[in-house]
Simulated scan of single mutants.
Amino acid sequence: MKAPLVEVKDVRKSFLVRKGWFGGDKYLRAVDGISFDIGKGETFSLVGESGCDKSTTGRLVTRLLAPNEGEVWFGGQNISRLSDHQMRPLRKEIQMVFQDPYASLNPRMKVKEIVAEPLLIHSKLSSHERDKLAAELLEEVGLNSYHAERYAHEFSGGQRQRIGIARALSVRPSLIVADEPVSALDVSIQSQVLNLLQDLQERYGLTYLFISHDLSVVEHISDRIGVMYLGTLVETAGKDELYERPLHPYTQALLSSVPVPDPKLKKERIILKGDIPSPVDPPSGCRFHTRCPACMDICKQLKPEFLEVEPGHQVACHLFDENVRRMG
């Protein structure tokens, strides 16, 4: 693996949802002890069902949220406890592309102002120089320079997402956190935006944290993939390894649900029963045991360790823990 640009070490993030008497406060445990790293120039994807707090993880990496416990390292520096003032120089290195291209662009600003807005803080360019750079960036993402004088409502969803990408590129970041960047787009437009992201990565040596619930999208763009369930990581592996040999029962169920293009081809699907438990009151032991078809008694009592079963392939499941197998 390439040298890590991002290291997430046993990070936890909780939110107070109800204040109680005599210390009976209720907390939503959004992210509960996850660890992963992202190499320079790599695309690491987080996948999982809605509500597993993939987006919260992305906001922890960008330091839009501060972790309660654990550490987030960027470029060899621990950014977990930096103040807003200390983070400010690093903001240009870490940019974000948001899920909703309609809500993430200011409707009162012209496109050239939207794209050049980060340069007001992170550069000393003149107004003319910012406008020129904005026009160049629009060309880079597949739009025309004359689009700079228009407003966001004059564009389609795919074009708006290209504007959001141009804005993220304006300060030449090292890391881009792409939070469901194509989920609001038509399928035909999704592939265009994904190809654009890959072209820009190759051109500028960008590193991506790509967040998605769509496994077909993730397969197209990822180098490595982490599978999240209820605020925890259950499996990480290289893209090819994960798709060819998923180990965790949850990963197997997710992959079995991916549609097959050929209607004549029959595919065995794993149907998970029940709903995702509440992160306010998560189950004991393995968080997946309430829906797992391979659940054992120990799964209900003991949280599985995140073990490397093969080089570069980690899984948190008692089925692959030799100590548990010996006990059984």
Rank of each mutant, 00 (worst) to 15 (best):
S216E: 12
R12V: 02
F44W: 08
Y102D: 06
H147W: 11
V111P: 08
C292R: 08
R91T: 06
V31I: 11
E136K: 11
T62K: 04
H147F: 15
A184K: 00
E202M: 09
R167I: 07
E268D: 15
V6N: 01
L215G: 05
F98R: 08
V141C: 01
A184T: 12
L143A: 06
A184N: 08
E202L: 13
T62H: 10
K54L: 01
A3F: 15
H318C: 00
I165N: 02
S284P: 00
G76C: 05
L197H: 06
T62I: 13
S257E: 02
M96F: 08
K303N: 03
Q99A: 11
L194K: 04
K264F: 12
A66Y: 11
E136G: 04
H248S: 03
D262Y: 05
A168T: 09
R12F: 14
Q252F: 01
Q95D: 08
I79L: 13
L175A: 00
S222Q: 11
G70V: 09
G20M: 12
L137A: 12
I298V: 13
R150I: 05
P118R: 03
E93C: 00
G157L: 03
P304G: 00
Q190D: 02
L247A: 12
C52E: 01
H122Y: 00
H147M: 15
Q99R: 09
L233Y: 06
M327W: 14
W21K: 15
E305L: 11
E71R: 15
I276M: 15
D199C: 09
M228K: 02
I211G: 02
I163G: 01
D25T: 02
V217Y: 02
D25R: 07
Q161W: 05
V217H: 09
V324I: 10
V97F: 12
L143C: 10
N144F: 14
F98N: 05
K2C: 11
I276V: 15
T236K: 14
E93I: 00
R59A: 02
Q192P: 13
D275R: 05
L319F: 12
Q161V: 11
R88L: 12
V315Q: 00
L137V: 06
I189Q: 02
E49A: 00
E117G: 03
E149P: 01
S170R: 07
F15A: 07
H213M: 09
